[in-house]
Design a binder for these strands. Structure first.
Lengths: 248, 248
DNA sequence: AAGTGGTCTAGACCACCGA
DNA sequence: CGGTGGTCTAGACCACTTG
């Protein structure tokens, strides 16, 4: 119960109806897969107008309990609102709070083709691979060694990679007018490889954070992959998950 | 443009109104901070009923462009819908895909009091610290060394920590009837400490993933803190961020 | 053709806020 | 007090799905 439960607080009728329906679903009087009564029937059942029924039913829809289809009806989809924990960022840069104040320095570029250390779906294709260091602002010490895998179709990105403040995903979006629809991020740890260690100023084999990010378009197509190695103590990744207060 | 753009598809009037309003905000005819016209005025302006205005305005509200207050009016809050990327899990266990098939083996318990390696707000208080190993299913090799910081008020948790499949946050929730409202997760890398290495079967100083999770209640109060060390190659953390298709 | 949800109108009363 | 958004009614027409 909320701390500000009010005794005299009359609930709107659509709330009463919504709660009654939720309870009926929760307690199994309507099973998942069942059809709910029609709006007209619910209106009669609860003695309210169609507007009120629709407002109530809208709540259930938003809570994901039901789906509706014109000409068909209303189907129960879930027994209870799942408690959902959500981390939302309004912009991908917020994923990595620092990203915007960083710059990239490209070391060299080559092609990779079937790297077995990569996931199967990535290793299948041939990628342009940009090796680079990431710096924070004016600092002379890099925070990460980055390998950027760029789909051959997006090769023109390479030329603009070193502009300050750019991010891969923004380049893909602006240069090619495509939206990044999904980002997959896999985090693990690693021993800093001998190839990368001197650039980072650490000993080979010392601990490093490995962050792989896969930028995907709307279908399944992979636009770019960023493989980052962060030496110890130069970088922390923080995520917050907040409880959704959707339907109570 | 969507692939199924239909020419003959007449838009609902509330959509037309909503888009007009969004464009007006986007282009600065209504500035952030300004009040929008009242519902009555908008109805007259666009020649639609109040229902249609409200349905339109509801879209802007859901998109986060405006906020409304009865007795006051409608305030413009943002110039454009920010693209939001969301990662949603229906249950905290999904945050760490493995957690449910794991078991904990407690090594020993002590008290910590002002550990300087911890964030200031955590270090301030006195915690019951449970040292443990986390195993996957029947495997004999632990995947992590865990230090569980338990608020003295929740000390009774300790006794049930070793039950298979339990998770800290569930114990807090069930034993004390409190909901975890927020989880903060900080990821970095570390050299596996000498104290932990033998238990994990690795050499001290080898790379390890450090995952700290802070479980918070509704206020600011911290319930528990989990400090995990995962040796290399035993564990990956994956997160997906999907583009919200909310308001177009 | 009958019935569904989706849209829309023209009214109405209310709680709340600011002057 | 007058005006706001929040709630609610009783109608209506429509596009769509199903038999």
């Amino acid at each position: 119960m909320s701390s500000k439960a009010l005794f005299g607080a009359r609930l709107p009728r659509y709330q009463v109806v919504a709660q009654a329906l939720m309870r009926d679903i929760e307690e199994g009087r309507y099973q998942v897969g069942d059809m709910l009564p029609t709006e007209a029937q619910l209106g009669e059942l609860y003695g309210v107008s169609r507007y009120t029924v629709r407002e109530a039913v809208r709540r259930l829809t938003e809570a994901g309990l039901i789906t509706r289809r014109a000409g068909v009806g209303t189907t129960v989809r879930a027994r209870a609102t799942k408690v959902r924990y959500t981390a939302t960022v309004s912009d991908l840069t917020e994923l990595f709070s620092f990203t915007e104040q960083t710059r990239l320095q490209v070391l060299h570029t080559d092609w990779i083709d079937g790297d077995p250390t990569l996931p199967a779906d990535v290793a299948e294709q041939r990628w342009l691979c940009c090796h680079a260091l990431r710096f924070v602002a004016e600092s002379r010490e890099p925070i990460a060694y980055v390998r950027m895998l760029i789909h051959p179709a997006y090769e023109s990105i390479r030329a603009r990679l070193e502009e300050p403040g750019v991010t891969v995903y923004r380049l893909v979006e602006t240069l090619h007018g495509e939206r990044i629809a999904e980002v997959r991020q896999v985090i693990g740890c690693t021993a800093v490889p001998a190839e990368e260690a001197p650039h980072l100023g650490v000993e080979p084999g010392t601990p490093g954070l490995r962050v792989h990010r896969y930028y995907q378009g709307d279908g399944e197509q992979l636009f770019t992959v960023a493989l980052n190695t962060y030496p110890q103590d130069r970088f922390n990744l923080e995520t917050r998950w907040r409880l959704d207060m959707a339907a109570e």
